[in-house]
Amino acid sequence: MHPAPSVIVFTTLSGAGFGLLAFLALGLLPVYGVQAFLIWGLGYGLAVIGLLASTFHLGNPQRAWRAFTQWRTSWLSREGWAAVAALLLLAPVALAAIFGGGLPPFFGLVGAAFCLATVIATSMIYTQLKTVPRWNFWATPALFLAFAATGGAIMTGQALMAAVLCALLAVLMIAAFKLGDQRFGEVGASMGSATGLGSVGKVRVLAQPHTGPNYLMKEMIHVVGRKHAATLRRIAVTLAAILPGLMLLFMPPHPFVLAVIAAIHLMGAFAARWLFFAEAEHVVGLYYGQR
């Protein structure tokens, strides 16, 4: 799949943002006043920038409001609702932290639940696609949740919890890479089943239907950069999970240190998300004899 910058920014930043907001909503970082303004502002900023980025790849963004109408069937629509609900429900919690004034923890709990729902809905947009076997299994929501939780724990300075989540994230990332490699074979789609000619004999492309590239090939048959996949996988796991985990364990949880750790983690998350798209193979490639 084509790794469009807009969707990489969208899924990575909004994931980290909603993770941070969930941790803040649960009251894990008792901050007030200016500090609260800055950290809640960071959470809202990441989430909103991510959501705005998602509209950049639309053909007709002026109609984006229509995406709220089909929540009964569409994960993309549900994601929109969950995101808006989380941001609205957490506004009083954030304001209470900034300006003082107590709110029962129930408000934060509900907001955190919607943050969780948003991340799950985002992951399900990809997980639901049978056509992309690498995405279409449990590891996709698990990874999205682990990234959100790890980012949130780092940014709220929960050093020990964040280190444990980093370890979990590393295991999940490696599992997703290894199991994902086998997914296309497991689904069983082949040039033979795509054309139905497998029962006649071995199928190969004799002539492509068009001489230039088309939308399908640009969008779904992205082969550029896959040759560096193995290196990028190591970089992604190291930056997103291993290095932040070690730094959390062996460095003091000073805000500046945490900011550096968060930046390293996000770089790893971007690399991982780039791979998530670039390595994903769509079954339509079979018609072109390509994966």
């Binding site: 790849h57 053909g59 789609a189 969008e219 079954v283």
Partner: peptide
């Protein structure tokens, strides 16, 4: 249609083009 392209991703047959 907002042109998000998700339906084209969901189609195994490459039947949709933006």
């Amino acid at each position: 249609c907002i042109g998000c392209g998700l339906c084209a991703w969901a189609c195994p047959y490459g039947a949709r083009e933006l």
